[in-house]
């Protein structure tokens, strides 16, 4: 079995996912941050720490994550951080809503406009076939939304 065959067998591990899990582009912490939160999956012990800083208009000008988790979780955190750069909390929530629909229903159930809006996040399209792994991709998002909220409450 070649690596290509293995990859075909495991379509959730698209090249972009594996690359970002190996070498994240948005790992670390924002300092100083005006929003921070942790996400933890009690089933596997994976954790994602998200920090962000916003401009006066509420746009996240910097988002970083520190992830201890599986490849799906780590890549989801990195691609999330990239996707929501410049987004307000409401915009980030809208992206998360589309992302959840992608995981729930799969790419083929989404219209072309939604798929375009998902951009890099389409890399997780095959995850809808792996019910037990969807929570791995969602964990960073729950941390992100909590980080937005923590900043507003402060």
């Amino acid at each position: 079995m070649s690596e290509a065959a293995l990859q075909a067998d495991a379509s959730i591990y698209q090249q972009l996912v594996v690359e970002r899990a190996r070498r994240p582009l948005h790992a670390g912490t924002v300092e100083p941050a005006d929003g921070a939160a942790d996400g933890t999956n009690p089933l596997c012990g994976d954790t994602v720490h998200v920090t962000l800083r916003r401009d006066p208009g509420g746009r996240a000008v910097a988002v970083r994550h520190r992830t201890r988790g599986c490849a799906i979780c780590a890549a989801a955190a990195d691609l999330m951080a990239e996707t929501v750069q410049g987004a307000t909390r409401n915009e980030a929530e809208a992206v998360f809503g589309r992302f959840q629909r992608l995981l729930q229903d799969g790419e083929t159930a989404l219209d072309a406009e939604t798929r375009r809006q998902l951009g890099l996040l389409n890399a997780f399209g095959e995850l809808h076939g792996y019910r037990s792994r969807r929570k791995c991709a969602i964990l960073p998002w729950s941390a992100l939304l909590a980080a937005f909220k923590s900043g507003e409450d402060a």
């Binding site: 596997c44 994976d46 599986c70």
Partner: peptide
């Protein structure tokens, strides 16, 4: 460099059932 859950998922794609977790 490889998380237990990724290993279990990839093994499963090859018909191999192992447990992963705590």
């Amino acid at each position: 460099g490889a998380h237990a859950h990724d290993i279990a998922t990839l093994l499963d794609r090859n018909g191999i059932a192992v447990r992963a977790g705590t």
